[in-house]
Design a protein around this nucleic acid. Structure first.
Lengths: 193, 193
DNA sequence: CGGTAGGGATAGGGTTCT
DNA sequence: TAGAACCCTATCCCTACC
């Protein structure tokens, strides 16, 4: 009676995905406040978003949370990769897919991150995105970033070299900093401790 | 792994409690700097300590912060009592408890607040600590301290009498003063406003 | 600038409903 | 029984205020 279990509509789900693409995971309140999504998601809380995203991610990767836990027990591997991977999966779903399951009543998809200014800047963007979508202070390590980008491009082995060099480049020009094998966006030129 | 949530170990928690008993609440940086605790708590910040203490206190009293807030809304009563009570609880836990949940691999417990000089002095200590560590001007009243001492000792009626009499005793000998049902450490004989 | 208090958000485990 | 939706709370983050 209090609440008969409010199932997620595909509009809501689409908005959530777009929100994650735009603001990153872990920015549930931000997504909720974004005028682009707030009306669609107005009956959801930030925690709802988090939970739904978990369902989406875990379903995409393992089929279920239960299996996910089992899988993670067997392989206590870098948990960060999973998050990046999930985001990638959804990114693909949302970005590559030209038709929505439902005709979006509102333009809830991200504006257009479609401006390819060249491969480099494209990769740079993805790298920054991968880092930006990291909520913790410690950023992702190179491996996670790589995985993220590779999957985005269907495991092109060329990508690895490109990403690695771009990563170095971004560090060199001061866009990002590398601290103990982890990368972080550099806010103002230098990120001294 | 960036830091998927660094759960507090029982060693750390013990160190924090000991630190609060030694330096008082609100002295997080001091506790961190204390050579007695600095190594155990080296991966924690002063803010972490503050947060964890809040968690411990509130859990001991209400079960959770959420319930605490609700309880406080229903009863906008003197918030000071809560803090004292929490401290008392921890004081008791640290001072009376003879067995740790986990056999401490390292001697991480405070050197020895284990010197039982008798039940009286033990109770006196708890009372004084609870009051001393109070930063608000109004001290705690005896009721809440009593209540939780009783609970901690499984409602032993003896405890109630003991605490009450010790409280009176401490007032009589001038160690503490009682002002409007609240107790304060007496610094120099008189505590005029 | 550094520290603390407090409000609030998130992560992850757990629970309920279907 | 599984999976989706929802709850609980330890931990973490942000901001105002010294």
């Amino acid at each position: 009676m209090g609440a008969p279990k409010q199932k997620w509509t595909s509009q809501e789900e689409t908005a959530l995905k777009a929100g994650v693409l735009k603001h990153g995971t872990g920015k549930w309140r931000t997504i909720l406040s974004d005028p682009e999504f707030t009306s669609i998601l107005k009956s959801r809380s930030n925690v709802d978003l988090k939970d739904k995203w978990r369902n989406i991610s875990v379903t995409a990767m393992y089929g279920s949370r239960k299996k996910a836990k089992l899988a993670l027990k067997r392989t206590p591997s870098s948990h960060d990769d999973d998050n990046a991977t999930a985001l990638t999966i959804v990114a693909i779903a949302n970005g590559v897919q030209h038709i929505s399951p439902l005709p979006p009543a509102v333009s809830c998809a991200p504006p257009p991150p479609r401006d390819f200014e060249g491969l480099f800047s494209s990769v740079d963007k993805m790298i920054l995105e991968a880092i930006a979508n990291f909520k913790r202070h410690l950023g992702p390590d190179g491996k996670s970033i790589l995985l993220y980008v590779e999957e985005k491009h269907n495991m092109q082995p060329d990508m690895k070299r490109l990403v690695t060099s771009r990563l170095k480049h971004l560090v060199n020009v001061g866009t990002i900093v590398k601290i103990k094998h982890r990368y972080r966006i550099c806010r103002n030129g230098a990120e001294q401790s």
